[in-house]
Each structure stands twice: as structure tokens, then as C-alpha cells.
Design a protein around this nucleic acid. Structure first.
Lengths: 312, 312
DNA sequence: ATATGCAATAAGCTTTACTAATGGATAGGC
DNA sequence: GCCTATCCATTAGTAAAGCTTATTGCATAT
């Protein structure tokens, strides 16, 4: 049986008029295209493309094959479309919310992917802290939420979520916290730091009662000191600015480190860094939005792209 | 894009009613089928088959997909058929000839494969020694011939073939010669033998003037002795019988060893075994039969299956 | 209870398919 | 006429896909 993916390559070459252009269009290398076409020609035992100085042209055999390829690919698309209709991904909406950091990193990626795959589902995204979002999900105002919680802590939100019968939680990603220091800080030359070594520092934090701030304080207590909080901001770009200005040091989660200012340094905490668990929550059972599983899958793929790329 | 081969697996499962049966039909293992279906279901994000105690049944989504699959595969076949028509493999005939050993081994395999792929080409096969066949090919009585020649020798046939403008030769396979001994022969315990050690033996050979016999004699001369030929037969089953009966020892090419009698032993010759080169000859250029390239390709595949399975 | 038929999973290996790097041919600029 | 840009082919190395073997688990029939 002819390999349909190779046929798709052939069609692209025919459309573009050259191997190189087809390679660009398919996000392949020219070599890959050349090899696929060579394999296809070997398979059918004839030349499909006439090589000419400024590209290629279809032979009679090639033309025949491309015509059928159009039909085959069209039919494949029809099949996919029908499946989407069955799955309810044709029309409808998906109301989402996420905590701010993910809203700036994971979600845009996932939304772009989802749009490409299911252009007819209307997506909306709200931002908010976990403690605001969870109730709205339970109330049916949202279809899918991106939350976080601290695994070790007796986090009341986490308790609520795990117990709740009406919500399903899926662990998406572990987001470790790193320490941000001014570039000139004396401890900055070390690759790893122990929390105890920072007991004399001034701290920049997220706002007083937020789970992140609470957790930072708890960590410091565990390390035997009370953090001296000099400033608070819920925007990690601001936090980076404050650290750079020498106002203090700060914990910043990896997801908020997609952009790191030149004038600060990021260091891992030894032995084990504190971690916040990023989770997706959706209503259980019947109240699950048709598009939710598809979005969940895409989120998991996007999250996989974030794993194992810690550079600090 | 959905993977068409997976769709084909799905269709087979739907037709057969169970993974295991589909696996048999496709010459896969049950595991492979299970994995392909699992991958397909992950891809579309829904269950395609309902698992039931005595096999599986299609879900609505599965049914949709199978219907389109039928169309897609049908179109693929149409494409292949049209290509065959273009290549002239629709109708027409291919007149072949081969030397006897290949006629009993390689050719049946190749013919079966070719028939499956191009059922409308009428195949004929004659048997004969290279020296009879080559002239008939040149005369246009044949479209494709399987010959052999001895590489080291100043083989007049080989000379003729390489020089001839009207024939194209393709090297197909190297067919090494082994030594056959009666099971009780004193030298039989050794794994490899040197030709010199056999100068006192009686020999069973192919008929006097055949290229094989000539070559054996030449080898013996090179090893410094004149073989004492006690018997001649052109049928290697007969040769095996004569060796078993203790009439003498014999050279037998690997291709003739697909069946080896229990009461003889086969040994390799050290340091390098004599080899006969199996080649395919076809008329050059315009006189090439349309079906010849396809058959050549199939022969090469069949020959690849013979390589590297020497067990002696 | 046990055997049987079927699917899922794990681990290992082979094959396929891609990338990167390089070579060779041809047309067009200068 | 030579240089250079533009293409395709080829080779080697690597990552991913796909297959096999072996094992497990489940449900029904004996």
C-alpha cells in the first residue's frame, strides 16, 4: 500500500514546484523531502518528478498520483471533521480561567494549538488566583480551570478540590520555585543555595495572604527564621524589578521565568526546591464541557514541552 | 493528519470482530494491533471500539471512521492500478528463463510476489543452462533471464554478456559453493575444510562440459590436483543421493541446499569458498519488456531474503 | 475452581524518517 | 568565461515509530 504521508509530500512538491520550497512549507529539510520522494518513486517503480534546473515538474505518473492524493487527503479531512462533530467540538464554547503566570505562558500556547485544531469552538480565558477560580468552576460559571497548590502544605484549597465530588483534578506540571538575587549579591556566585543562608535577607513577596506568600513564609519557618518582608507585588515582572533594584531577594516560580532580566540572577535551592503543583480542574461527569477533554490533552502536551528544561 | 495505516488496522479489526483475528489477517501480532488502535484512539480523543467479552464492536465514532477508511483505501488502490496501467503492467506478458537451481528456489518466490502485485501480466518460465538461455534472450525470444557465472574465471559467457551492448546485466546474489560429504566421512567432523585435503577423494559432478563442472575442475587444479570424477548428474537431489551412497564428495551451491538429506553433511571451504555470481539479464533500452523492471525489483527483494542465512 | 479466549502492558529491538553536512550540476550575473 | 546562487542527491548519525516476545488481567465457559 502506498504511504499516504509520502503522497502528501509529493503533492506539496507539485504545488510548490521545488523540493526546497515544499520542505519549507512542510517544516522539513530539503533532504527529508528528497528522501521521501525517492522512496515513493522506488515504491511505484517510476519517476514521478522530472528534475529541471529551476525545480521539478510532474511526470504523467506523478500527475495521476497527485490527483488521487487530493481526493484522499480531502476524505481524511472529512473524516476528522465528522469526528469532531460527534465529539461536540463543532461550535460550542469553552470558558476557562487560569492563575496569572500560566495565563501568560502555558495558556497562550495551548489556545493557539486548540484554535488550529478546532477553529469553531469559542474560547474565553479569565485570570484569577486559585481561590477565586475554584468556586466559580463549582458554580458552573467555568468549564476548565488551571490552578496550583502546594503539595506539602495543608492547603485548604487543595483539600477542597480533592474531596469535592463535583470536580475532577488532573496534575499537569510541577513548577519549582527558584531564588532571584540582584546580580551583584555576594551569594550570587554560588550555583545552589540553602534557604538557611538567606535568613538575614530582605524579601520581596506576592501579596500577604496569597498561597504563594504563605508558602514562602512556611518554608522560611521550616528553615528556622522569620522572613523580613520588605515589599509585595503580585506581578513577577515587578518582583524581578524590585530584586534588581536591590530591595530584596524573592522566590519566583519557573513558569514566571520565561523572561529573566539581565540584572538579576536565578539560583536553585538545595537540597530540594519548593514546588507548586499545577493542576487542571474540570467539572466531573455530566457537566463536563464537550471541548474540555481535547483542551486537557493539548494542555498536557504543552506542559510536556515545559518539563525538563530548567536551566537554573 | 490521521495515520492511514492505523485506519487500515481499524478496518480490519472491525471486519474481523477482534484484535487477535485482525492481527492474524494482517500478519501482525495481537500486541501490535492493540497498540495501533490505542494510538488511534488517543489521536482522535475518543473510544473507537467497545471492548466486549468475545471481541470488540464499533462505536459510532469508529463506524464513521471505518466508512471513510473504505473510501480512502479504495482510492489508493485506484491510484495504484492507474499507475500500473501507465507502466504497462496491465496485461502483457513476461517471458522468463532461469537456470534449474534458481528455477526451484528464487523464481517461485518471485513469481508468487509478482502475481499478487500484478495479476494481469502473463508469466512464463523456462529452464535451461546459461549457455542456452543467453542467446535466446539476445534473439528476443525471452524478456528476462536468470543466469550465473564464475567471477574469477575467464568465463566465455560472462565475457559475452558484459561486452554485449544489447543486454543489461544486474548482479543479484552471490551463491557460494559448499562441500557435501557422506555423514560418516572421516573429514566430516571438521567445520571447515581446505580443498587440498580432498585430493584423494572421488568426486560427483555436474555433467562434463557444464560451467559448474569446469569451475570445480579449475578449483582443484588451483589446489594442485586433478579431481577423480566418479559420477555425473545435473540434478542436485541426485548428487546428494550419490554423496550419501558414498560414491564421492561434491560441490553444491547454496541455492541447491534448501533441502539437505539427513545422511549427508555440508561443510564450508576454507579460506574462501568458491562463489558463483547469480545475475539477471534483460534486453537493453527499447526492447525492455514493460514488466521487466518490476520483476527485477521483486527478484532483488527475494534475493535479499537469501543473503546472510548460510547455516553451514 | 480451573481452563480458555481476548485485550493491555512492559521491555527490547528493528526499521523508518528526520536533521546536518557536503557534493555536484546548471543557469544567470558580471 | 568564470563565479555564484539555486537546486537536488547522498551520507552519516540520531530520534521516534512500530513491531515482537513475554506477561498480566479479566471475563466467560467448563
Amino acid at each position: 500500500m502506498l504511504n499516504v504521508n509520502r503522497l502528501r509530500v509529493l503533492r506539496e512538491v507539485a504545488n510548490q514546484g521545488s523540493f526546497s520550497a515544499a520542505a519549507d512549507a512542510l517544516a522539513y529539510t530539503q533532504s527529508a523531502v528528497s528522501q521521501q520522494i525517492a522512496a515513493l518513486e522506488a515504491e511505484v517503480g517510476m519517476t514521478l518528478l522530472e528534475r529541471r534546473p529551476r525545480g521539478v515538474r510532474l511526470t504523467a505518473a506523478g500527475r495521476t498520483l497527485v490527483e488521487h492524493t487530493e481526493g484522499i487527503l480531502a476524505r481524511l479531512e472529512t473524516a476528522e471533521t465528522e469526528l469532531e462533530e460527534l465529539a461536540g467540538l463543532r461550535g460550542g464554547a469553552l470558558r476557562m480561567a487560569s492563575f496569572p503566570t500560566a495565563g501568560a505562558t502555558l495558556m497562550p500556547l495551548a489556545i493557539a494549538k486548540f484554535r488550529a485544531k478546532h477553529p469553531d469552538v469559542e474560547l474565553t480565558l479569565a485570570e484569577g488566583e486559585p481561590e477565586e477560580i475554584a468556586p466559580r468552576l463549582q458554580a458552573g460559571e467555568l468549564d476548565l480551570a488551571l490552578l496550583f497548590e502546594f503539595a506539602d502544605a495543608s492547603d485548604p484549597l487543595a483539600e477542597n478540590l480533592t474531596r469535592s465530588e463535583s470536580l475532577t483534578r488532573v496534575e499537569l506540571l510541577e513548577d519549582p520555585l527558584y531564588l532571584a538575587l540582584p546580580r551583584k549579591h555576594p551569594l550570587a556566585r554560588r550555583k545552589e543555595l540553602r534557604l538557611e543562608e538567606l535568613h538575614t535577607e530582605a524579601w520581596v513577596q506576592t501579596s500577604q495572604l496569597s498561597p504563594c506568600a504563605t508558602h514562602v513564609v512556611r518554608c522560611c519557618h521550616a528553615a528556622g527564621f522569620e522572613p523580613n518582608v520588605s515589599f509585595e507585588s503580585d506581578d513577577y515582572q515587578t518582583v524581578q524589578g524590585l530584586v534588581a533594584a536591590g530591595v530584596g531577594v524573592a522566590f519566583i516560580p519557573e513558569l514566571a521565568l520565561s523572561v529573566v532580566r539581565e540584572d538579576i540572577l536565578v539560583r536553585a535551592l538545595a537540597p530540594a526546591p519548593p514546588v507548586r503543583q499545577v493542576i487542571v480542574a474540570v467539572p466531573s461527569g455530566g457537566r463536563l464541557a464537550p471541548a474540555a477533554p481535547a483542551m486537557l490533552q493539548i494542555l498536557q502536551e504543552a506542559a510536556a514541552g515545559y518539563k525538563g528544561r530548567r536551566s537554573y
